[in-house]
Simulated assay, not measured.
Amino acid sequence: MTTIYYTASSLDGFIADPEHSLSWLLTRDVDRAGPMGYDDFIAGVGALAMGASTYQWLLDNLEEEWPYEMPAWVFTHRDFPLASGDVRFTSADVRAVHAEMLQAAAGRTLWLVGGGDLAGQFADAGLLDELWVQYAPVTLAAGAPLLPRRLELRLEELAQNRDFACARYAVVG
């Protein structure tokens, strides 16, 4: 089973702008069924994790029901309303939650939705296997960093998906 941080980033390494907006991302042309696209990726996911800011963004911006069928862990110290899906709030160490996620995923991929610091915590614990990044043709100059850690990676795959340069990396250290 693989634990993957699958995300989009600006060319200068930010996953959200200083106002936590993704407007720079949501206006881009991408083929969800294209190379390294979301549709094939999500089809293999058995459980996911996200930080409080990502969960808040989803609550603020969803126009329909909770988008995930699989269990989702939200790492937070804040109180939030419960979304309509299988959402589990935690402030536990990523190692303990990773074990729960493995069991729930039943052999499928674990997806670290965001943010970068949460993915970094999994990396620090030796629990991050891959980083998939869809680079948007924009620079933001500031915001939430892609991965605020030093991490050694090995390039495994490159693709173009319309506006995006897509890269898949294995964590090597």
Score class of each variant (00 low, 15 high):
M1F: 14
T2H: 15
T2W: 15
T3Q: 09
I4W: 07
T7S: 08
A8G: 05
L11S: 01
F14Y: 14
I15P: 00
D17G: 13
H20Q: 10
L22I: 04
W24K: 10
W24V: 10
L25H: 02
L26H: 13
D29M: 10
D31P: 01
D31K: 10
G34M: 06
P35G: 08
M36I: 15
D39S: 11
D40C: 10
D40W: 12
L48I: 14
M50K: 02
G51Q: 01
S53G: 07
E63V: 00
M70G: 06
M70H: 12
W73I: 04
F75A: 06
T76G: 04
H77P: 05
D79C: 03
D79Y: 06
D79R: 09
F80G: 09
L82E: 07
A83C: 08
S84C: 02
G85H: 00
F89T: 10
T90K: 12
V97W: 01
A99F: 13
E100T: 08
M101E: 13
M101S: 13
L102N: 07
A106Y: 05
L112V: 15
G114A: 15
L118P: 07
G120V: 03
Q121W: 09
F122C: 06
A123W: 06
A123C: 13
A125M: 11
G126K: 11
L127K: 03
L128N: 02
Y135G: 03
Y135K: 14
A136K: 07
A136E: 08
V138N: 00
T139E: 11
L140A: 08
L140V: 08
A142L: 12
A144S: 11
P145D: 14
P145E: 15
P148R: 10
P148Q: 11
R149K: 14
R149Y: 04
R150G: 04
L151R: 15
E152D: 12
L153I: 06
R154F: 00
A159T: 01
C166K: 02
Y169M: 11
Y169P: 12
G173C: 09
